[in-house]
């Protein structure tokens, strides 16, 4: 009779080697990367009109609004940005990609916490995909505990508040309370277009335009939803663990 042990041994090591080696295509499918204007640096067609969420202005894509629908591919845009596309500044996400010296230097508000971080998830109006992508970090293919990331069930034990979804009126107060219940030092990460800008639901009555209207945000991870690899990279950067020294 086979046992769990035999079966596990038979399946072997499944865990991703990210971030020691770059993410594979299997881990980050094409459309999870940020769209950028084509090599000529311009849109070939009616890009701004075609974008269903108004994320394109000229040839600049506001990565915080983009829901990765891939429609702008027809206008010469390419899903070619860096896999690691999180940013501590909302303005930097909206900046034309080619216009200046690259992404903001990352801040690391939790650099003092060493090698272990506890995450607390708050859903303020998501479609459930962002939640599941965050929780996927615990599965053996990512095994975030190897990097010192753990999920906690209480804001009292949390170092990082992870917010997903478009902030509704009803969740504003519970979110603020969860934030206040956390001990310092603490950091807030927003996952997904919904939480950053309202995403696909931007402008609906009763929704805030972004989580940063409710609590101070330390890091934005764009995507719809961001893949586990992108979430992992963002959260590690909070502790000052840049690529290379993890």
């Amino acid at each position: 009779m086979p046992s769990w042990i035999e079966q596990s041994a038979h399946r072997g090591l499944l865990t991703s080697r990210y971030p020691r080696v770059p993410a594979s295509d299997a881990e980050v499918p094409t459309t999870a990367r940020p769209p950028l204007a084509g090599p000529e640096g311009r849109a070939a067609g009616p890009g701004p009109d075609r974008c269903p969420v108004g994320a394109i202005e000229g040839v600049a894509v506001d990565q915080g609004r983009c829901i990765r629908c891939a429609r702008c591919l027809a206008d010469g845009f390419r899903f070619a940005g860096a896999v690691e596309s999180s940013s501590p500044s909302r303005a930097a996400l909206a900046r034309p990609a080619a216009s200046d010296a690259g992404p903001d230097p990352r801040r690391a508000p939790l650099a003092g916490l060493g090698r272990s971080l506890h995450l607390f998830l708050v859903d303020v109006g998501s479609c459930n995909a962002c939640n599941l992508e965050l929780l996927a970090l615990a599965n053996p293919l990512y095994d975030a505990s190897r990097l010192g990331l753990f999920f906690t069930n209480s804001p009292r034990h949390a170092d990082v508040l992870v917010i997903v979804g478009a902030p509704t009126e009803e969740m504003a107060e519970p979110l603020r309370r969860a934030y206040e219940a956390m001990p310092g030092p603490k950091a807030v990460v927003v996952l997904g277009a919904c939480g950053i800008s309202g995403g696909a639901f931007r402008g609906n009555p009763g929704l805030r335009a972004g989580c940063d209207e409710l609590v101070p945000v330390d890091l934005y991870v764009p995507g719809c939803p961001p893949t586990p690899v992108q979430v992992l990279d963002g959260i590690l950067s909070l502790a000052g663990r840049g690529r290379g020294d993890r």
Binding site: A32, R68, R71, C224
Partner: peptide, 14 residues
């Protein structure tokens, strides 16, 4: 092209 099949069936999708 998408882990959750967003846009997979829509015209112009990925």
């Amino acid at each position: 092209g998408h882990r959750w099949l967003f846009g997979a069936f829509l015209p112009g999708g990925p």
